[in-house]
């Protein structure tokens, strides 16, 4: 589904990213782990349009999406979430979701002035779509509250829900479990798995190994900007090189 090849990114003289080949297969959850500074978030930033890569190629479902800006990536079906939740606190929870819906007539000034009835109908459909998503994670009861009032875990859920409004092919999740209470971690994991069951593809950067074990079909290990190995969770965690580079420090 998502194929990353020979992707490099330098900051000054520092080679932040030097990836050979990473494949995120359709309908699976692929984990990306590695010690701090291994380039995981840089990888997401480069694939997700925040940075342009120096060289290399990113293919989404057969389409070249290398170096596209974030809003173009969203059109192509690739959405990311952020390590530190970026809720839009001036918007309600429902508005956060409605915002993400693509192709809204009401985003045009002339339509806002002269096509009120059509916008109203469109908004009602959008609210229905958002309501279905919010009800799945029991957030509909908070729909009209400011997104700033949510807990850490709920904000992470909100980011995933917001992404889902775009009906994306691939969602990049940057540390979904960071800053999330243990009980919410379970809710979040269950929700991600239920979306996977519906055919959404995920790539996840995460430090929480329980989360990785629970969610991921396969795992890439990154160190120093490159992918070191790829395998199932158990293959990866029992590999001595990985233990040395990453897990060794945890013993």
């Amino acid at each position: 589904m998502l194929k990353i090849s020979d992707l490099t990114k330098k900051f000054g003289a520092f080679q932040a990213l030097n990836v050979g080949q990473i494949d995120i297969p359709r309908g699976q959850v692929t984990g990306i782990v590695g010690p701090n500074g291994a380039g995981k978030t840089t990888l997401f930033n480069t694939v997700g349009g925040a940075f342009r890569p120096d060289t290399g190629q990113v293919m989404l479902d057969g389409t070249d999406i290398t170096g596209l800006p974030p809003h173009k990536l969203a059109e192509q079906g690739l959405v990311r979430t952020f390590q530190i939740s970026r809720d839009l606190g001036a918007l309600t929870i429902l508005e956060n979701l409605l915002l993400a819906r693509p192709g809204q007539l009401g985003e045009s000034i002339t339509a806002s002035l002269f096509s009120r009835a059509r916008i109203r109908a469109e908004e009602e459909n959008a609210v229905e779509q958002a309501r279905t998503l919010l009800e799945r994670v029991d957030l509909w009861r908070l729909a009209d509250q400011s997104a700033a009032n949510l807990s850490g875990g709920q904000k992470k859920l909100l980011e995933v829900l917001r992404a889902m409004m775009l009906s994306p092919k691939v969602i990049l999740l940057d540390e979904p479990a960071a800053g999330v209470a243990p009980t919410m971690e379970g809710v979040l994991a269950d929700f991600i798995l239920s979306l996977k069951a519906e055919g959404v593809t995920f790539a996840i950067v995460e430090h929480d190994m329980e989360m990785i074990e629970r969610l991921c079909d396969s795992v890439y290990v990154m160190t120093e900007g490159r992918e070191m190995m790829h395998g199932s969770f158990h293959e990866v965690t029992s590999d001595p090189r990985v233990l040395e580079a990453y897990l060794g420090s945890m013993v």
Binding site: G49, A74, L99
Partner: peptide
């Protein structure tokens, strides 16, 4: 609030 989020959402 956050233009990066807005652009990430298309």
């Amino acid at each position: 609030e956050d233009d990066l989020v807005a652009s990430t959402l298309g």
